[in-house]
């Protein structure tokens, strides 16, 4: 465990010193909150901001998780990876460090987005509800980051990775339950949305907001994360000696 911390600390130091990057990742989810959450004329609820906030939080975690893959790709391209692989510490720590950093950074970003949402009129919930919400977001972050690092291990260059990220982000978001509940969706969208991992996380956060404990979704997210981490380790061992 102790050998993972240096990797995480390194990434946080580097991130904290790139001032533009710290702000720019927040612009997109904040824009969604304000321009869609406040502006869209919606009939199925009288507080659309409360409805869309879980979706935007999960979207923030999605892009934060995918960014973990990009970071790993740069380590690969710039030669850091080879230096790390020649260290005696367990090699998998490189992956765990990256996945934990990406999820941890996502949690920080989600906190800021949540604060903005409350500032512009979203409801405030109890500490216990927030604690479960954070657990869901963190698990989802782990899932996405593990998936993104696996893809980054497979691909050879940064261009293909960023094309891949662009390709999946929007379709994943729009086919989830982020923007509308299942009963107002067109019938063809419902089955897609109900198997979309984004919906698991979003529905779970909404259930928490409604005062329920989303055990099924938590278990599903936990199992999925464990599975993807397993695949990630396998791919890692195969591509590095």
């Amino acid at each position: 465990m102790s050998a993972i911390v240096p990797y995480i600390r390194r990434d946080f130091l580097r991130w904290g010193r790139g001032r533009v990057a710290v702000v720019s990742t927040l612009v997109m989810p904040a824009a969604w909150l304000v321009f869609v959450g406040l502006a869209l004329p919606i009939r199925f609820t009288d507080n659309y901001l409360d409805f869309i906030t879980p979706g935007i939080l999960v979207m923030t975690m999605l892009s934060a998780g995918l960014a973990g893959g990009t970071l790993l790709m740069f380590d690969k391209i710039l030669g850091f990876m080879n230096k790390f692989l020649a260290l005696p510490a367990p090699r998998e720590n490189i992956l765990f460090g990256k996945i934990l950093f990406a999820s941890g950074r996502g949690i920080l970003q989600a906190t800021i987005i949540l604060a903005i949402a409350i500032l512009i009129g979203a409801s405030v919930y109890s500490p216990l509800q927030y604690a479960v919400t954070y657990l869901i977001l963190f698990l989802f972050g782990i899932l996405v980051a593990a998936f993104a690092t696996t893809v980054a291990l497979y691909l050879d260059d940064h261009d293909s990775l960023s094309a891949f990220n662009t390709m999946i982000t929007m379709p994943l978001f729009f086919t989830s339950s982020a923007l509308m509940p299942y009963d107002v969706m067109p019938p063809w969208l419902r089955p897609i949305a109900s198997v979309n991992p984004l919906s698991f996380a979003i529905d779970a956060v909404r259930a928490v907001d409604a005062g329920m404990m989303p055990s099924v979704q938590l278990a599903a997210l936990g199992l999925l994360s464990a599975g993807v981490i397993g695949i990630c380790i396998h791919v890692f061992r195969r591509t590095t000696v």
């Binding site: 050998a3 580097r14 010193r17 080879n82 230096k83 020649a86 260290l87 510490a89």
Partner: peptide
């Protein structure tokens, strides 16, 4: 192992760069 790519973190100080490896080596 020092590969030919010159991989040091430019956003970290020299000390942080070395301390990072000292921690990784334990």
């Amino acid at each position: 192992y020092v590969p030919q790519d010159m991989a040091v973190d430019i956003k970290l100080t020299g000390r942080e760069n070395v301390l990072f490896y000292a921690d990784l080596y334990g």
